[in-house]
Each structure stands twice: as C-alpha cells, then as structure tokens.
C-alpha cells in the first residue's frame, strides 16, 4: 500500500487518547459520560428507564459507534450527548464543559435519519444554514468546499426535492460539518437508504472523516456500518440501555470498500453480530 504511513498516522490520531489535544478547546473534544441515566415520565406515575448508568470515556478524535436493539436507548443517549435531552442522573462533559456550552460555542454538528433539510433552501443555502443559525457571517468558500467534499458541487443550486435520498443525506452531513465541529453526532444518518447507496455513503463518510478527524458518535442498526466506520463499538443491552460490551476495531485506516473483504473485518462483524443477538435474546427472555 502506497499510503501506509498516512494510514498509520491516521490510526495514531484516531485511536488513542491524546492528552495534549484534548486539553485544547478547538481540537476534537474528548467526551466523558459518568453514571448517565435517563428516565422518562409516562404519566399516571409510570416511568420508563431508557438509559441506565452509562460510563464511557471517548477520546478526542475518536469514532464511536453505538449499536443495540431498537428502543434500547441509543438515540436517547446520543441526544443527551448532543444537549437535546438532559440526563436524569449523572453527568456528561465535552472537553470538560457541559453539552449546552458546546452548543453555545457552535462546536457541535448533527445529522439525523431524517435529513432535516429546509425544503425552501437550495443545497448551498442548506449547507450555509448553520452560519445563519449561529448568527455568523457566511463563509462562502467553506460552504463551496463542503459541497465539493460531499461531491455535490454541481448541485449547489438544486432544491432538496430535486435531490435523491443519498444526495440529501450528503447535504445533511456537509451541513453538520460546515462549522468545523469538535463533536459530530450522527443518528442513523443512512438508515433510510438502500443497501448499496448505504455502503457507498459509508465509504464517503469514512473518507470525509479521515480528512478532518472529529470526535464522532454514530448510532446505527447496522453492525457492518459500525465495524467499517468506528474505532470502538459500544453495544447496548435492551431497555434499560446499559453498555453491555465495548469492542475495539483493529482495522487500518484509511478504510475502503475492499476493507469489508478483509478477514479481520469479517471476524469483528461475526463476533459483534453474535454478541448483539445474544444481548437481544437475553432481553426478550426476561
């Protein structure tokens, strides 16, 4: 491989905690979850324990995937990290500060399963939206750069309804990245796409992420997607969601479509799929 040294550098950057950078505010931020629980009130005194006692330290620049059965609290955990929900117990810090502070400094990027593009704005204006939402002057070069990065430079003036599902998700990811976030939150961003488009989008995301390593947390139903993208995979048990298993993915970066044919990839995939099945059947037996 001609770019082995590049791959090693990236792996070094991505894999392990880096004390020097995690202290800086502008680099990819480390995230610490301490005893995080979330209980929803259902009314009439009933409550739902969505997330229970999660402890996790995420290194700056690390890519974490959260997998688990439907309704196991993955998205709730993600929304708490993004500051969209408050934990009932425990604390979450991003670079030593609360998610709310992270939001106020515009250091967070989010992309969800629903693309959430504004139908009345062109692809370009949708990518530029975070500047306007944050009350910052629009950096037109940055917007052009991001559209080119997701391969949609020729579709800058297209409205969302004129774009395919995969294109809309790419715009959504460009929007999430445009303010150079320290933390990238991805909630099933490719969940609504067909299998082929999804694999291609994973490859794109992997490439984009290697170009600007950002602390990333991805919620997904696809073990394959998790293994392909992540440095570490957190497996959550069914409700109440706890961390059942944390698995390190030992695959070199950059990863490409042929990575999926490597034996290590197959092994990790098989192991995690078995663990996921195990955890889910345990849950249903209770």
């Amino acid at each position: 491989m001609s770019n082995t040294s590049h791959a090693q550098t990236l792996q070094a950057v991505a894999g392990k905690p880096r004390e020097a950078e995690s202290a800086s505010i502008t680099g990819p931020s480390e995230i610490a979850l301490t005893n995080v629980s979330k209980t929803f009130a259902l009314g009439k005194g009933q409550t739902l324990d969505a997330v229970s006692n999660v402890n996790l330290n995420i290194a700056g620049g690390e890519f974490i995937a959260l997998i688990g059965a439907s309704g196991c609290g993955k998205s709730t955990l993600l929304r708490m990290i993004a500051g969209l929900e408050d934990p009932s117990q425990g604390s979450i810090t991003i670079a030593g500060q609360s998610p709310e502070d992270c939001i106020k400094r515009q250091k967070l990027g989010i992309a969800m399963q629903e693309h959430g593009l504004m139908p009345w704005l062109s692809a370009w204006d949708n990518v530029a939206l975070p500047f306007r939402l944050a009350g910052l002057p629009v950096d037109t070069e940055r917007v052009d750069e991001l559209l080119a990065l997701v391969g949609l430079a020729d579709f800058a003036q297209a409205l969302p309804k004129q774009l395919s599902g995969g294109m809309k998700q790419r715009v959504s990811i460009a929007r999430a990245l445009v303010l150079k976030p320290d933390v990238l939150i991805l909630d099933e961003p490719f969940g609504a796409l067909d299998a082929v488009t999804r694999r291609l989008m994973n490859n794109e995301l992997q490439r984009i992420w290697s170009q600007q390593p950002t602390t990333t947390i991805l919620v997904t139903h696809s073990v394959e997607e998790a293994v392909f993208l992540a440095d570490r995979i957190c497996l959550m048990s069914p409700r109440p969601g706890r961390l059942a298993l944390i698995e390190e993915v030992e695959l070199n970066r950059p990863r490409g479509l042929d990575t999926m044919h490597e034996p290590e990839f197959r092994q990790t995939l098989a192991k995690l799929t078995a663990a996921l099945d195990d955890v889910c059947t345990q849950g249903s037996r209770q």
Partner: peptide, 19 residues
Amino acid sequence: VHRDVTRAYGTAHWRALLL
C-alpha cells in the same frame, strides 16, 4: 428534526423563528 437542528446551534428564538 428542524427544531433539533436549530437547537444544536444554540440559535436565538427570534432567529430560529425567522429562518
């Protein structure tokens, strides 16, 4: 999801209203 996007950037209420 539109509300989530505006909240994720700490957008002021009046600005979220307008945009």
